[in-house]
Design a binder for these strands. Structure first.
Lengths: 343, 343
DNA sequence: GTTAGCACTCACCAATATCGACTGCTAATT
DNA sequence: AATTAGCAGTCGATATTGGTGAGTGCTAAC
């Protein structure tokens, strides 16, 4: 029985690999030919019957080969797959990324692009989340007599902006003074220490400016409250449609789900890293209808500051090369952590 | 002949409208039935023969109806189409946009989303370009002992960031002082006045900080030089794949072209507004292979400051409802201009 | 537990036939 | 000169058919 069982796993592995490679249901004969299982097709058929009973593979129609089910992929990912190390060229690409990094937003964009290229799939990345940010600088810029822009810089380098409508027109200079006051009084204050003392701020400026200060102060509070809403950047959507990745007509809904960032954010949030530093959701495990035929591979990256780690990952057909994808995602996460946390 | 000619245009218009509506080649019989041209199919056939000779329509195969060529659409857009006014609901959606606008980046994102929804197509928007910006504030934030982030705020509210690697470790405070020096000395200087006087800046700080000041100063110069590279935000890519919009296998390359922002940027840049405040490129007019089956409708929006206006627009199949699309794009451009320039 | 043999199922393909939507042309009509 | 009716001809789209082969499940022997 033990001997038997290990061969069954071999068979499952072979089926997954062949199916990923050929995109066609794989039959018993082809299996013994391509892999050197030293038994006859009939034996394999018995194993396949068992695997099917266990819900690991299924036959699309009576006289066709088998394809893995979500459960089959799951078992494959958890117990059988081998992680493929990166090639030299891939490592090199990551290094170039580190060298050319300047604008931090651009780093994220390039990272996600590279990940999409390496995996030939859609890549996504969450904006980093900082928990221990302090207020660093506040500036108020006039856009029109009645409209101003409040700019908030945090110690992490994160910048937030918000447009406000003023109750009464204010001169550029007045706004600047208000910004300075705010900067002085709130400097080094933790971004999570709420509410900010709007009243004392108001009384610190001359009466003519007090209503304006109130408006701006409230804007700052609300900026700190919401933080910058969690966002996702993605790249490689074209890979969904690529000749190879035949998700067929399903790609419309998939694109929708991706554009509707909430879906992806929730999913990423739910995913827990396993001991390998990766998390994988396959098919229905995504518990989202339009992602039924896709799998998500994600990993956390550290953003220098401690705090809830943000994630990056790829979205592709369940029928994907898990080994390669998983290693690319993990490597990318590690590399990005390094770029962000030190020089 | 004049009478004849106007009917020919009617026929062209009818063909375009029917084809847009049904997505099927349209024949002479169907034409007289659906539109009340008071002549017989045979007459229409003669007209169609003429239109075909003029290169305005074509037959996909011998015994099928006709479809408009790019030239046909062009004539339609220039001379025949009627702009469809917006519905009440659409106007309302735009107003809501204005009311909830706070973060200026979010305004762009919501605008492009709304435009995609209104037109059921892919919408794109260029970041606004400001020409007369002045330097407003500079801040330097420490990320790690050897790495810092330079933040530059312009009078327009635009914020640029760049990571720099320091030649020698610097304390948080030192970096802050460097930022203050830069802010003081460069305040109100035009962003286009280059190069900035790095030498005098260097000599304005104590010797120990001079190399660091040099690095930061150069970073500022390069930030001003490049400006924030022109960028595009897009939304509604899922509409490309929607059941309705049958671009078929062409969507892969289209998505690629869209992701490769350069293509779109160059195209938008080339497009000149006509007297209606719109510009349209149809099929090959885009002079880009993967956009052969698509049309681009764009309009300029003003961003408060004068200067090269940025554009917004939509990308869809050549077989699109030009009337609706054009009015939506134009309305959106006007509305956005209003939001951005005043309150 | 493995294997050979065999009957059976069913997607896939190619060939063939049918249908019907159009066109273009000619000749008659206004 | 423009319009129209009538008609032959073209050709894509669709359905029908039969053949082929990959693949299965089962049974009986090893």
């Amino acid at each position: 029985m033990p001997d038997n069982n290990t061969r069954r796993l071999q068979v499952l592995r072979a089926i997954v690999e062949d199916y990923v490679h050929t995109r066609e249901p794989v039959g018993s004969k082809a299996l013994v030919e391509r892999h050197n299982l030293e038994v006859s097709p009939a034996t394999i058929r018995n194993d396949m019957a068992q695997l099917e009973e266990d819900g690991l593979i299924a036959a699309p129609h009576t006289s066709a080969g088998r394809i893995p089910t979500d459960l089959g992929y799951r078992l494959f990912v958890d117990r059988i797959s081998e992680v493929r190390p990166l090639t030299r060229a891939e490592r090199r690409a990551m290094e170039i990324l580190a060298e050319t990094a300047d604008d931090p937003e651009a780093v994220l964009e390039q990272t996600v692009r590279l990940l999409a290229m390496l995996t030939n799939q859609v890549a996504v990345i969450q904006h980093p989340q900082y928990s221990s940010a302090k207020i660093r600088h506040i500036d108020v810029v006039s856009l029109s007599p009645q409209k101003a822009l409040v700019i908030l810089i945090l110690s992490t380098g994160k910048v937030e902006q918000r447009m406000v409508t003023l109750a009464q027109p204010a001169a550029e200079d007045d706004l600047h003074r208000i910004g300075q006051k705010l900067s002085e009084q709130l400097h080094s204050r933790s971004a999570s220490a709420l509410p900010i003392p709007v009243d004392s701020l108001i009384s610190s400026v001359e009466p003519a400016l007090q209503t304006t200060m109130a408006v701006v102060g409230n804007a700052v509070t609300s900026m700190l409250e919401s933080g910058r809403v969690d966002r996702i950047i993605m790249a490689g959507t074209a890979n969904l449609a690529k000749s190879g990745g035949d998700l067929g007509p399903a790609i419309g809904p998939i694109l929708e789900a991706l554009e509707e960032q909430v879906v992806m954010l929730r999913l990423l949030h739910e995913m827990q890293q396993d001991q390998r530093g990766l998390s994988v959701r396959i098919g229905q495990e995504t518990s989202h209808k339009s992602l039924q035929e896709t799998a998500v591979v994600a990993a956390e990256y550290a953003s220098g500051e401690t705090g809830a780690g943000a994630k990056l990952g790829v979205v592709g057909p369940t029928r994907m090369d898990y080994g390669t994808t998983m290693s690319a995602v993990r490597a990318m996460a590690r590399y990005l952590s390094r770029i962000l946390s030190e020089g």
